[in-house]
Design a protein around this nucleic acid. Structure first.
Lengths: 172, 172
DNA sequence: GCGAGATACTTAACATGTTAAGTGAATGCG
DNA sequence: CGCATTCACTTAACATGTTAAGTATCTCGC
């Protein structure tokens, strides 16, 4: 029994099961993915009605809280990668939902802000969005929701600095 | 104070802040997204070294546990949408990591299984993958990890049936 | 004050997410 | 049987995720 499988000795497909691993459907990434999808499934239809994607909505929300931000800072806030943000900003600007102008001091930087139209759109989406969030909170329980978010934060912090890729990590 | 903002009355960009909402960075979707990203960041480099994406790896893992599955069932297991799965299966088949053959009884269905090469690839990835998972577990704590996953499952269940889109929901 | 390196984006290229439409095969009903 | 429906996928189209290159600008040492 070194490496041979217990196949039925005919031309059937490989028996699989030869690579022992955790039950994949119970892995942490899958749990997080499914939970997030369950949540976002609630919001997408409403956003879609207003012609917004999840990410566009994230950007508008991030912008609504401030006067103006640099693109890099916005990427950090809205948790988007530079290239994604770059594309989305191009589109949002074309739709006049945001405004952009280069910083005086540093020509490389461009300051982004939400436009009046953008604010109007937000105002029309926010009520539904808040109602959905409230219903989710009601169903899951406000206290448990807070606990969950606390744990998610802890998870994040406990993995911070566990180099994913090009992080500047001393490995010695 | 009906609708006018407290702008400084010059040509500066809109003051924003006119749409009151929760602090967006603390929303549940963002928490879930960030937590998941923190986790996946650990796995991606290793997968990448083996020429696999996260989703391709999910599919191989799902296949490794069984003889063969229909595409629809696989989509459910690997938590992928049909179109994504369709594309990925095409590529995995071209790389000879999976095999596909139409079901005898129903010509519409196609049964997918992992190939010997696929199993070999899995065997070469699994150790690193398991080690990373173990390290994550160690950092966050096995007990807390179990708690977290329990909560995520509860969240999912509490939102099940809260119609996202085309669910068959009676609204009256 | 200039040239190497760092910064702040943007483009490009490829893979997936998401929704809609298309295709071929099974089902059910008159 | 005939045909409209349903089903199991696949294609298409557009938006984002992800990594690598490219571009313009800035900073700093010399």
């Amino acid at each position: 029994m070194t490496k041979k499988s217990a196949d039925s000795a005919n031309g059937s497909p490989p028996a699989a099961r030869q690579v022992p691993m955790r039950d994949f459907s119970r892995s942490l990434p899958m749990s997080l993915l499914r939970a997030r999808e369950a949540v976002m499934r609630q919001f997408r239809p409403s956003l879609r009605e207003h012609g917004l994607t999840e990410q566009q909505w994230r950007i508008l929300r991030a912008l609504a809280a401030i006067e103006a931000v640099e693109v890099t800072e916005l990427a950090r806030t809205a948790f988007l990668l530079g290239p994604s943000l770059s594309r989305i900003l191009r589109d949002l600007e074309a739709r006049n939902l945001i405004e952009r102008k280069t910083a005086k001091a540093d020509q490389r930087r461009s300051m982004v802000s939400i436009s009046k139209e953008g604010l109007k759109l937000m105002a029309s989406v926010a009520p539904t969005s808040e109602a959905i969030y409230a219903e989710i909170t009601r169903r899951f329980g406000a206290r448990k929701l807070a606990e969950l978010q606390e744990m998610l934060g802890e998870l994040e912090r406990s993995l911070a600095g566990l180099g994913g890729a090009d992080d500047t990590l001393a490995e010695g």
